[in-house]
Structures are given as C-alpha cells and as structure tokens.
Design a protein around this nucleic acid. Structure first.
Lengths: 260, 260
DNA sequence: CGGTTCTTTGAGAGATATCAACCAAGGTGG
DNA sequence: CCACCTTGGTTGATATCTCTCAAAGAACCG
C-alpha cells in the first residue's frame, strides 16, 4: 500500500474525528438509525488522516488492501485503465463516501482511486472496521447498505453510457452530481462546485474530450445549464432531467427534490 | 409483488431445499468458509419455489420488495427501461445468484428482472434472511460479499460499454459468461450453453441488433468463437481475452483459468 | 402449411472519434 | 513586469463507427 506524506496539523486525530463523525456518520444515518453509542463508537474509530494533493493517485486496481478510506473533503474519481491506454471513470466519490469499501471483504482494490481536487481522507484499518461491525450490527448494515447504493449507481451508469447519447449522458451526470451534492449540503439553489475538467467528463461518460465540449455547448444553447470554472448552475431542472432521463431513485437519497 | 403460478411438484419444499443448498450454499462457500451449522441453517431457510416461463417478467424496477430470489436454474436478466423505450441489460444472473439482494436493505427493486430461459427460483422472505444474518455473522458477511462482487461486475460493465468497441464488448461478455459458467460447472472445454439471442447481446452491450450480428461475424471470421443456437464455443481463449481486454479479477471467482 | 421469432444482408444516414490547430487563463522564473 | 510554459477550452475538417430502415432468409412451432 502507498504511504503519503501525512499533512502536518496541530492535532490531526481530533481534527479528523470531527470530520469523520460529520462525513461518515451523517452518511450512515441517512441510511439507518444509529444509537448514541453507535454514533460515538464511529467517532472513536482509530483512523489515520491522509491529505492528497490534486491529481494524485490514491491506489491502483489490484492493490492489496488492509485498510480503507473515507473521503472527508474533496472529489475522488474511481477509474479503470483500458488496454488502449485510456481511462474510464466509473464513479465519483464525495465526502462521506468510502470508495474502496469493496476491499473490506474482497481484499483487493478493483479500481484506481485518484484525487481530483486536494483531498482529505481518513484511513481505517479493515480489522478495526470489522470488529466495529461485529459489535454493532446496525453499523454493519449501514455499511452494507452504502455498498448497495454504490452498486446501484454503477448499474445506472451502465445504462447511461450504454444507451444514451452524448447530451443525455452529460445531463444525467449533472443531475446525479447536483442531487448528491445537495444531499451533502454542498449545493444550493441549483448551483454547485463541480471541479471536473472536460476530460473528466469525457472519461466518465465514455465520450471524446472534443465531443464533450460540443455537447456542453448544446446544453448551454438550450439554456439548461452553465458550467464554467468548475461551477455548475442548472437553469432548467425539469428540462435537464428530461434530457438526461434522470430519475433519482437509484441514488437512494432521502429527499431528492426532483419532479420529472 | 407479483405472484406466479407455482409449478406443481410432488414435494416442492424438499426438492427446492436440495437445490438451495446446491446453488446458494455453493456460491457462498466460494466466498467464505461456513460451519456445518451455518450450512444446515442455510438449507433450512423457509422458501417458496417459483417457476417462471421463458420471457416472463419477474419484477419491475420500483416494486416494493419483502422477499428476494435465489436463482436455482436458468438465466435471468437484470435490465432497465430507457425513456426511448429501449432496454439496457445491466447484468445476467445465473444459478446461485440473488439478483435483487439489493432490495434486502433498500426495500425497492431498482431494475427489472426477466427470465431468459425457463427459470426455477427460490423466494426468501427478507425477515427470514435478516434473522439468519443476525444469528450467523458469517452468512451476513458472505451475502455482503456477494453483493460486492455484483457491484464489481456492474463497474466492469461501465468500462465495457463505455470504452470498448463492438467486437471488444462482445468478446468481453463472452469471456465473462464462460468464466462464470465454468465456476458453476456449467461449461467444459470452452463450450457452454449461452441461451441469449442477438437482441439480448445488443441490449447488454449497448449496440444495435444489426451491429451485433456483424460483429459476431467478425469474431467468427477471426476464428475466436462460434455461437449458434445458444451454444458458445471459444476456439481461441487468449485471442478472445485480448480482443475483449478481459481480466477475470473483477469476477472474484476462485480459479478463473485465463492466462492473458 | 402459415405464423412467429431469430438471423442475415444491403444501403444510406447520423453520431462520435480523431487529427491538427489555435485561444485563453494562470503560474513561474528571470 | 514580462516572456514563457502549462493546462484547459474551443474550432474546423475529415474519418470511422454505429444506427436506422427495409427486406429477405432460416429456423422453430403449432
């Protein structure tokens, strides 16, 4: 496993714990109810804080894993290399997500993880997480559920790249990201920071960089969105959802706020 | 929930139990070790056997679920409808698979299930499964792991439809199905029954029916496979794996038997 | 035998990829 | 402060892949 230059911080553990309860516990509580005891045990998980600069690789497909990450801050991409040397991004992980929770039981990373923005991660030993799960079945259930949701998102992406055309794929992706960021309190009034380059969008939608550029122009021309400098604004929620055939059910967030 | 015409059978419960231990327990034991007690508890799960004729819908995306299925015999497709009225198949479920295990925690089906061939299914109440999981953490872990593998397969499909061209997509799908059927003992000497029409292949790969037909001809011309009457023969394993950029890791089957 | 369903073929249209530049913004070192 | 470099975005022209439409064979089934 890779070891990063841990970021210097006055009291990393304390600092991170605060973030952990915020990011992870919030996420889990959106899935199941937790008792105060469970909540505090979550906060007491021994973790190592890791800061990763933008663009850096976090782990590679095939790596043996003995710990897993919780995203505390920043955007992480999950991707796989193809033989042609291109990358297919298969998901984006946001604060609260555990992008390699798969490894908890499968021991192996099955995708590359990369920091899109500067990221703060918490690293938790598998053994600690397992014993937590054994002590608190509700936590195990919540973690299980969160992996189910992640799987559901992968499945929807199969539909997205497999059956929609360029503008629809982008529209769908934008709807998804807006919905997830809203659920995290990171979007308001149909505006959010979405620090993805057109290359990221291309790799996530299975399109060429150039075609993404032209499709974005089309979305702008139809006055559905503006997207500049990593800031996304949705002008016509219904229109964008229609164009992307977006139905938020698969995200399993509490109150999506989309009426199609 | 839909209710099917239960198939008449002299002693359905007994008969099915035998199948359940075969299909499900075998699957789970490929993921974790089970004690004899756990194995017998699995076999004693109260289940309802359901037979579904070929082509029939088993459940729809959005259905409320209070039980889930184990495929005992046959091929099941997982798919989603798109607004355009087309279908995207997102996975195939084989004997031993639980294609809607997602519903155990999420309560809602997020894809259509359809019987491709005549299928024999076992239906297990969520409540029974939950209490089994509570009693035997190893079973819970095995089930969790199986959902993680299913997610891993979805992710690879994102790569497949998102970044490979027609012939590669088909080659990859054939490699996957051969590997999984081998693991089940349903393939030998690079030959297996794969009862998918070209329309199924098209819906699974995100291609048009006609283009699938022509791409199959290409695969035949390169002497990689023959595929007629629902029977697949791989003539050149290495060549097919190369064409499909297939690496069996993501399937997490014990001994895949592919050297690339 | 006639009606399905599945497969195959041909021709043309449409979407997307590729190649080659150019532009704009931001950071850096002199 | 400016020249330079890098990164990300844009444009035009052309090539390629894949889709659609239309129709004809094949295989299966009652």
């Amino acid at each position: 496993m890779v070891v990063w230059p841990g970021a210097a911080h006055p009291d990393p553990m304390l600092f991170t714990k605060a973030f952990t309860s915020q990011a992870l516990a919030a996420k889990l509580e959106s899935l199941v109810d937790l008792s105060t005891e469970e909540r505090s045990s979550l906060g007491a998980l021994p973790i190592r804080q890791v800061d990763v600069p933008a663009g850096e690789l976090i782990c590679r497909a095939g790596d043996q894993l003995s710990s897993c990450f919780i995203v505390l801050e920043g955007f992480v991409s999950l991707s796989k290399e193809t033989a042609a040397g291109t990358r297919q991004i298969t998901a984006f992980a946001l604060p609260g997500d555990m992008p390699d929770l798969l490894g908890l039981h499968l021991k192996v990373a099955n995708h590359d993880l990369a920091a899109i923005t500067p990221c703060r991660l918490a690293s938790v030993e598998h053994s600690d997480l397992r014993s937590l799960c054994r002590t608190f079945p509700a936590i195990a259930e919540a973690l299980w559920t969160s992996t189910l949701v992640a799987g559901s998102v992968f499945e929807e992406w199969v539909v997205n790249v497999g059956s929609r055309k360029a503008t629809s794929r982008l529209a769908h992706l934008f709807c998804e990201m807006m919905t997830r960021l809203e659920a995290l309190g990171l979007a308001r009034n149909d505006v959010c920071d979405l620090p993805l380059t057109q290359v990221h969008l291309a790799e996530a939608t299975g399109l060429s960089r150039i075609h993404v550029n032209r499709s974005l122009q089309e979305l702008r021309k139809q006055e559905l969105i503006t997207y500049t400098n990593g800031r996304l604004t949705i002008h016509d929620r219904t229109g964008l959802a229609q164009m992307g055939q977006f139905d938020p059910d698969y995200l399993h967030v509490p109150r999506p706020g989309w009426r199609t």
